[in-house]
Amino acid sequence: MSISREEIATTARLARIRLRDDEIDDVTSRIASILDMVDQMQAIDTSAVEPMSNSLDAAQVLRSDKVDEPGDKIAAREALMAGAPAQQDGLFLVPKVIE
């Protein structure tokens, strides 16, 4: 399965990655070579194989419904938001969200 320049461009938009015009061909060819390697998998028949998403053959252990909160919520917020690129009145600021 080879990948086209357009598919790379579409995928990049989905992933919010900007590729410059002068790098898109290079990126396309590198990714194409990765996908060629990956395509070795297609040689084997896996139709009867159940996909495995985790090696731990276990069920999830659930948490009981308990609130776990800091005593000083405003101080905790300050600590958590200390690295925010832009904030005001306890809110993260971003360029205007248009719905």
Binding site: M41, T46, V49, E50, P51, M52, S55
Partner: peptide, 14 residues
């Protein structure tokens, strides 16, 4: 073709 297939191969490897 990719993700599901890879998860199947993963089981074969295990």
């Amino acid at each position: 073709a990719y993700y599901r297939k890879a998860q199947q191969v993963r089981r074969l490897i295990k």
